[in-house]
Computed example of a mutant assay.
Amino acid sequence: MSDFDFSQRFLFDDNDVRGELVALEDSYQQVLAKHAYPEPVARLLGEMMAAAALLAGNLKFEGLLVLQARSSGPVPLLMVECSSEREVRGIARYHAEQIDAQAGLRELMPEGVLALTVDPKDGQRYQGIVALDGADLAECLSQYFVNSEQLPTKFWLQSDGRRARGLMLQALPADRLRDPEERQAAWEHVTTLADTLRAEELLKLDNETLLHRLYHQEQVRLFDALPLQFRCSCSRERSSRALVSLGEEDARRLLEEEGGTLSIDCQFCNHRYLFDAADIAQLFAGGGSDEPSSTRH
C-alpha cells in the first residue's frame, strides 16, 4: 500500500454537505504500466479511476463498483473497477492513429455512454446509464446524479499521466438545515467555492491545505485517510470457470487449434494463464484446475 494512494472524507459542521477526496499515484502508475496508452487516454483513464474510487467510498456493503464507458470514437472502451476493499483496476481500448494529442472527452468518446454498476456480493445488482455529452467526465457524472434524482452530488477530476485526483461533494438528508432555501444556498456556496479550484491545486496540494484554501471560513472536519491500491481480481480459478462455460467439446477443439496449450490473458494486468490437455481433462472431470498440471514445464 502506498502513502500516495488514499481516499479521505470530510464533513461540514454547519450544513448538510459531505465531501470526499481521492489521490491515486502508485495504483495509477501500475495500471498505466500494463499498456502503452497515449497521453490523452492515460489522462482520461486516470480521471475515471479517481471517479470510481470516490463513488466506491459510498459503498456500505461488500461488493464492486464498475464504471464502463463505450463510444464510436477513438476510445471505444474505458473500464474501471473499485471494490469495497478500495482495490482498483482499469483498462482502455483505443485506436492510436485516431487520437490527437490535445483531445478531450468529446473527441475521444463521441456518442459515448457511461454505465455505472453497483454489484454487491449479496443482494441486487444496480446499474445507471448517462450520456457522455458533457465537457468532461466530472460534468457527466454530476449530471447523472441530477437526472437520477439522487442526492445532489458534484465532481471535480484531474489527471496528468502521473497522478490522478478527485473531489466529490454530496448533499446529505436534512439535519442541520431544515429550510429548503437555506439548504440550497449552502449547497451553492460550497460548490461555487469548489469551482474556483484550479487543476494544479487539485493535483498538487495536500488535502488539509486544499480544504483550507477553499473553506477557511467554514467548519470542516477531515477524517482519517483510507488506503487505496491496485489489485487485479483475475485468477486461474476464474479462467478455469471461463473454460468450463465453453463446454468440454469446444474447449478441446480450441486446445487442438492452439497446438496443445490454451492461454487466457487478463486484459487488465496482462497475466497469462496456461492450460494443457491434462488441465482440460482434470477440469471437466470435476477436479478443478487451481494449479497448472505437472505435464507442462
Rank of each mutant, 00 (worst) to 15 (best):
L222F: 00
L214M: 09
G259E: 08
A164Y: 05
D160I: 06
L65F: 08
Y144Q: 01
Y273E: 12
H216C: 10
D5C: 06
C266T: 01
S71E: 03
L274Y: 05
G46P: 02
A51V: 01
Y28R: 09
L177Y: 01
Q170W: 00
I264W: 12
Y126I: 03
E47V: 13
Y37N: 14
P38R: 01
G134S: 06
T153Q: 15
V88C: 09
L132D: 06
D26K: 14
L114Y: 06
C82E: 01
P292G: 12
I280E: 01
N147M: 12
W156K: 12
E182G: 13
R125M: 07
E182T: 15
R183L: 11
A285W: 00
R236I: 11
D195H: 04
A281M: 00
D250S: 10
A285R: 09
I129G: 00
D122N: 11
H95N: 15
F12I: 14
L77I: 11
R162L: 15
A56N: 11
E208R: 14
L67Y: 02
V113H: 03
Q217R: 11
H216N: 13
L274F: 03
G63T: 15
L193N: 09
S293H: 04
R178T: 10
V146I: 05
F4Q: 03
T191P: 02
P40M: 01
S294W: 01
E47Y: 00
M49R: 01
L169D: 05
P292E: 11
L108E: 02
E139Y: 07
D122F: 04
L226V: 13
A242L: 15
Q143E: 14
R162V: 14
E208Q: 13
E107K: 10
S71W: 06
L65Y: 06
D3G: 02
A51H: 05
E87G: 13
R178S: 03
R252W: 00
M49L: 13
F10L: 05
R9A: 13
R86P: 05
K121W: 08
T192Q: 15
T196A: 14
C140Q: 00
F61T: 09
R106M: 08
R213T: 12
G57F: 09
A164G: 04
T153G: 10
D290A: 15
G288H: 04
V190S: 01
H95A: 08
V220K: 10
W156C: 00
A194K: 03
E200Y: 08
A194Q: 00
